[in-house]
């Protein structure tokens, strides 16, 4: 329910980087069909997986079925686990519980491979998603990314911790052998073959026994499709398989964000330089305006001073002239007086 919201969200805003073509898996890749209705929970697959992959011996032997009482997930020591779900979840009344095998689903477009920053994971043309411990840094982003919660980590190793997960027995497939679990299954609950043919087999089983199966092949389209496909008689969500993952392959979820990188690199310097230029220009303009204002003020002051000076000069001139005139007048008067005195005498 929760991530159903997220699912709709994703459909609503599809990653723009998605082109018109979409990858539907390598043409001749292999797949495994897990018919959940056939599984009896004998753990033979777990034992075979352990032996084939040379994993450490478990605390309880594989013949001990008491481990089925608790829900388990893959660990660094177990690539595959079988979980038991009580019978009351079944739609058709039956006494038998439901057993589900869990391991890497080997996505057609794996989230782990898309998330890995050293390309430690890769999808082989045969269908297996394999891991290369020789380059792994141990960041564990693959574990964050995996929608099926499959990759595990050797937390107790100090020097050479690895991510651990099912390899679809890639080395055996290359030799023409069946994956260990498929070979060991006594009930043919596991079928190995070309993915195309496996899908046909699954569809055929649903067509023939509509009463036995839910009309859905889990893994056909989940997260863009997987190389491990499931048939069930009960709703997948009731047996620990999420039905809210959507059909968008994981790489598409991040392609939009990755696509924005070159645009930011290209556009940001232009934008920033533009802002810089504008702020610089503003500064220049205001500087100029200030200079002009100062100049104008200076000019005004100078003019005023000129005018004052001229006025002062004129005044001084006038005063001087008056003084001369007065002096002349005085001299004349004195001369006149003198002449008069001389005349009397």
């Amino acid at each position: 329910m929760g991530a159903a919201g997220a699912g709709t969200l994703l459909k609503g805003t599809s990653a723009q980087a998605a082109a018109n073509t979409h990858f539907t898996g390598y043409p001749n890749s292999y797949a495994v069909l897990h018919d959940i209705t056939r599984c009896v929970g004998c753990r033979s697959c777990e034992a075979a997986c352990n032996a084939v992959n040379e994993l450490p011996k478990p605390d309880k032997p594989f013949t001990d079925l008491s481990v089925l009482e608790s829900r388990r997930r893959t660990t660094a020591k177990t690539y595959t686990v079988v979980n038991k779900f009580p019978s009351d979840i079944q739609t058709t009344p039956s006494e038998k519980p439901v057993y589900v095998k869990k391991q890497c689903n080997h996505c057609l477009e794996p989230a782990c491979a898309s998330a890995c920053f050293v390309r430690a994971f890769h999808k082989t043309p045969e269908g297996a998603v394999i891991y290369d411990p020789s380059v792994c840094v141990g960041c564990r982003y693959c574990m964050i990314a995996c929608p099926f919660e499959i990759p595990t980590y050797e937390y107790d190793k100090a020097l050479e911790p690895r991510v651990m997960k099912c390899t679809m027995c890639y080395p055996r497939i290359q030799k023409g052998l069946l994956p260990g679990c498929v070979q060991a299954c006594p009930k043919e609950a596991l079928t190995f073959g070309k993915r195309k043919e496996i899908l046909d087999i699954a569809r055929e089983r649903i067509r023939r026994h509509p009463e036995r199966y839910i009309d859905h092949i889990y893994g056909e389209r989940e997260m863009g499709g997987t190389s491990w496909l499931y048939l069930s008689g009960v709703p997948f969500a009731s047996i620990g398989m999420r039905e809210d993952l959507g059909v968008t392959p994981a790489p598409e979820l991040t392609s939009g964000a990755l696509g924005a990188v070159p645009i930011v690199v290209g556009l940001w310097p232009v934008l920033l330089t533009g802002i810089y230029a504008i702020s610089k220009r503003k500064e220049k303009v205001s500087e100029e305006e200030r200079r002009e204002a100062v100049e104008a003020a200076l000019a005004r002051a100078r003019e005023q001073a000129e005018a004052e000076k001229a006025a002062a000069l004129a005044k001084a001139q006038k005063e001087k002239e008056t003084a001369v005139q007065q002096a002349v007048k005085k001299a004349l008067e004195e001369a006149k007086k003198k002449a008069e005195q001389e005349g009397q005498a």
């Binding site: 890995c116 050293v118 390309r119 792994c136 840094v137 141990g138 960041c139 564990r140 980590y153 991040t254």
Partner: peptide, 27 residues
């Protein structure tokens, strides 16, 4: 402290570039 093999932190740049990873961009 967090990554398993810190001495390999330069690997994404010098050994193999996982350019589809957001973590590569972060790094």
């Amino acid at each position: 402290y967090d990554v398993g093999r810190p001495w390999r932190l330069p690997y994404p740049f010098v050994v193999q570039q996982g350019t589809t990873s957001l973590l590569f961009e972060v790094g």
